[in-house]
Write a protein that binds this DNA or RNA. Structure first.
Lengths: 303, 303
DNA sequence: TGAGCGGATGAATTTAATTCATCCGGGCTG
DNA sequence: CAGCCCGGATGAATTAAATTCATCCGCTCA
């Protein structure tokens, strides 16, 4: 039967463009370039022999035929999406269980997961946040985010991001009578310590060439989350790590008073057993993670 | 909002394969190789994580999930086809859109359409195959082929052909250790049932004077295409209907073991709204259909 | 038991989709 | 008013997907 139907890519491009009345925005939504949308819609129009959009000086507008076709196409894609979701196995390949540190989960992954869910609504991400290293043997954990040198036998390791360490504190500490302005001012500040990273202050102070400040003063916290919360509350100065403090820096809860960063040896990796590393939903997550912008990259001096 | 949708090629391959219960036949219908269908359906199954077809020794069968997904996909593609036809320019006098049952389309009209195209190369025939009764209100459907008594108000009805019902099976069942030779042998055979025609076996057995065979044994299928595919695969004996089994009888995929046919009350009609029933291209199609030889007419006893 | 059928599979090829680089036109701004 | 953004268009190049080809496999039937 010769029932000529447009390709899926063209229908989706048209649906998005009609919804947003913008090829550029449609491209962003579908993770394509505007050029791709333009090509698809052009070829759809050619194939139909019908103009779907007016492109005039005042931008884009649906034609009457385009509006009508949009209603139909939208309904059809909606129905197809539901049917396909129904046909899809529930808890199989569409659920990815990831193990990672609680701090990384809370301060880095979870804020981004919202966007991932919008991008891949059919992929369910389960987080197992733990300070213990993930055990892949049970078959429960699909992947983990680990910090290290990427040398874990039997696991596929894909690089995610580097780590930079530098003092962070509440913005309140950089103003007032005795503001933090140079690393030397740390002599008068309370240093907040992370029990999981003993000696981290020594490392940074040494790299910054500050030998005369005692690094062993101040309270010790059990986890990064606690150290950073204390710092945000103005209790003192913490040694922040880039992926973890990214959102706090972005929202202004924390500031970086000096600009001298110390690159950590090693970096973050997405690791998964070789055998299951290529399952589609994990591959989607990996690709998505890797295309995330590294907004926290050092703007200033790297030590 | 992003949702993962299968490619059009995969959907069409699946639709055709599900309708015909055969990759090879689907390939022929779509002008592709069986390999292409196999690849597409395989990748669709992989993507869904759902098995859509049982492939066992006795040939192809839809799984429950496959049957459900087929219903959805078929509806969606049909709606898309109508919407696209509506959006398309030049649905003029040289295009005729016909609605008919999928089984009649696949097993009767499509095989003949080739010849029609040669006779009338300028007339484009669009098929909308659906189990729903055609709705002429939208202006999309020009005509339909319906089975019934020809009494549809407001529609011009031209008779096409009668229907005769009789057992059919794979030629394999008429040979071997226990061949089907007389209707009494049906006692030992598996009767294949069509959910759309409950009681059809009772009717035929009663007319044939076989009171002592229980008609309610055997699997029930959703559609004529499935029943006939199962029969052709040697699964059992189906109750065939003349226009539908014509090509299978001609190619030898099915045989008629007994020769006793039951004439159905009612017949097939070409129906079209009175207002547009005489448009030239539809008139050409009507004339051509009516001059088609009725190659399946009963050669033997009519009950 | 070996020929034939329908489907599966992997590599090669063909075809479609997407990007890249560039262009165009109009409105906005300095 | 010139220059410059901005969004879209366009054609060639690139990348990705669909399809074919060649072959294999398991089963059935002479």
């Amino acid at each position: 039967m010769y029932r000529k139907l447009p390709p899926m890519a063209a229908l989706r491009a048209f649906e998005a463009a009609a919804q947003l009345v913008s090829f550029k925005a449609a491209a962003a939504q579908l993770h394509r370039t505007p050029s791709a949308i333009s090509h698809q819609i052009r070829s759809l129009e050619d194939e139909l022999g019908t103009v779907l959009f007016h492109r005039d000086a005042h931008g884009l507008r649906l034609t009457d035929a385009g509006r009508e076709y949009y209603r139909d196409v939208h309904g059809v894609l909606e129905a197809l999406g539901e049917a396909t979701a129904r046909a899809r196995q529930g808890h199989g390949e569409d659920t990815v269980t990831i193990s990672l540190f609680p701090s990384l989960a809370v301060r880095w992954l979870i804020p981004r997961l919202q966007a991932f869910r919008e991008r891949w609504p059919d992929i369910e991400i389960e987080l197992v946040s733990s300070v213990r290293r993930a055990d892949f043997d049970g078959g429960v954990i699909d992947a983990a985010i680990r910090f290290g040198d990427g040398d874990w036998p039997g696991l596929r390791c894909d690089p995610l991001m580097i780590e930079e360490r530098f003092p962070v504190c509440s913005p309140a500490l950089t103003t007032g009578t005795r503001p933090l302005e140079t690393p030397d001012d740390l002599a008068h500040a309370i240093l907040l310590h992370n029990g999981a990273h003993p000696g981290e202050w020594d490392d940074w102070l040494a790299a910054a060439g500050i030998g005369h400040i005692a690094a062993d003063r101040g309270p010790v916290f059990d986890a990064s989350n606690e150290v950073l919360a204390a710092a945000a509350n103005g209790m003192g100065v913490a040694l922040g790590r880039t992926p973890l403090v990214e959102s706090d820096l972005a929202t202004g809860r924390l500031v970086e008073p000096f600009g001298q960063r110390l690159r950590s040896p090693g970096q973050y990796w997405l690791v998964a057993p070789e055998a299951t590393a290529d399952q589609p939903s994990l591959a989607a997550l990996r690709a998505w993670l890797q295309e995330q912008p590294v907004s926290f990259a050092s703007q200033s001096g790297l030590l």
